[in-house]
Design a protein around this nucleic acid. Structure first.
Lengths: 233, 233
DNA sequence: AATAAAAACGAACGCTCGCTCTTTTTAAGG
DNA sequence: CCTTAAAAAGAGCGAGCGTTCGTTTTTATT
């Protein structure tokens, strides 16, 4: 099998992780300042501590039973907080979902911003695919939650969530179209963009398949990129 | 772009649809006889009529608000049935989800059985990919529901649901491995199988993207198969 | 037309839900 | 150490949930 130009090497997951700006506490601090109007607590220190407890508990319970089926009393016993503490933090139950949407939005915007700084379209594509793949793994519970619980959001936020995915697809499609022009031509660009996106989502939607060492994320990323590049010829 | 061996032509969606054994009423009749112990009504005629109302309503409401958030009173006003009528039909709410799982199981088993009758692995692969793609579109609300609402099932049925997906992946993987042996070698077979599966799921999970004429299912199927075959060299 | 079985009805039940609100505890600045 | 504002506590509330069950209506058979 002949190695194609852009495959292998380049940015690794380990490197990406080192430069990733949203460690757990840092993320909660940012979410606190971005969502002050949804959060009753005024001092960052307490807000971060409670948010951490609430979202950890949510991400433990929701994949098993779903967000609607998770009661606030489930959340209390999982977090150790009281009703008053939880309500002071998040104001109401659906704000949990709203804040998750905000976190994912934050992550996605960063990825696109980075990719747009690359002028070479091949590099930009790599940056976008790896950025989305790696970031969605580092923020796996958040991406997973938003995908499965979009229907639990108020309508306006549901629309935001759908736009978010469309924006990613469009971004990919444009780069692929540009790269395709340079060669003969291959598959419809939207088909390849769709493939790339669903391969990325596969990874954060079915975490149990990738828990074991199995295939590393870096190999996975390389295979995806190779598949894309090969589709051009 | 050079046309590959197994691309284009072969079984079309229209042909598949004509031979598909589960028209709406036929499907409910089969589900009735497969799930007699979950269903309180004894005469097929009434069972089919009520099941049809209940599942149509479910598939209208659930994609918007989720299964847990759909109350039985929502279901009553959407179906026009009474509380007694609904409970006589399905015994309890979670049986709606259990019967959906059974319907999807039925569909998947058929596909695998058909594909296994093909001796040529190339033909078998085509049969499996198209069978799964086309069947999951004809039964779209059922497949969609099971994917998003597996967490609403009792544990034993959740396990069934997960096995179902694994079985499809394994079936694909075996064929791909066999076909790969005949050429040099390419990507890991499980990677290609995963790609095929997620491209199929993409179609029934995001129906709004494919409502418009846009790209026909047949072209989509051909592109998928071509991508697979090209990965061998 | 009479009868018995099946299906449909819908008010009522007990329970759990998300949320509020009064009270108590904690934290931080002077 | 006192003060005061922020945070935490948790009993209690009304609404709405899934489910039950005594009754009525429909269906099929004689």
């Amino acid at each position: 099998m002949i190695k194609e130009s852009n495959s292998s090497n380049g940015l690794t997951f380990a490197e990406f992780k080192n430069h990733f700006p949203y460690s757990e506490d840092a993320l909660y601090a940012v979410l606190f300042s971005r969502n002050k109007e949804l959060i009753g607590i005024r001092r960052e220190k307490f807000a971060v501590r409670n948010l951490k407890k609430i979202f950890r508990a949510t991400f433990k319970l929701v994949p098993k039973i779903g967000f609607q089926a998770m009661s606030l009393r489930d959340l209390l016993s999982e977090t150790g907080l009281s009703m008053g503490g939880v309500y002071l933090t998040i104001t109401n139950k659906e704000n949990i979902a709203v804040i998750v949407k905000d976190a994912v939005t934050l992550g996605c915007d960063d990825i696109v911003r980075n990719a747009r700084e690359e002028t070479d379209p091949g590099k930009a594509l790599e940056c976008l695919v790896k950025g989305y793949l790696f970031a969605s793994l580092l923020l796996q519970p958040w991406f997973y939650f938003l995908y499965f619980e979009t229907r639990s959001l108020p309508q306006a936020h549901q629309n935001d969530s759908k736009s978010l995915e469309r924006a990613q697809a469009t971004e990919l499609e444009q780069l692929i179209r540009e790269l395709q022009k340079q060669t003969s031509n291959g598959y419809p660009p939207e088909f390849i963009a769709t493939m790339a996106l669903s391969m990325i989502q596969e990874r954060y939607l079915k975490p149990w398949k990738y828990k074991q060492p199995a295939q590393s994320v870096d190999d996975y990323a390389d295979n995806c990129l190779q598949l894309i590049h090969r589709s051009f010829s």
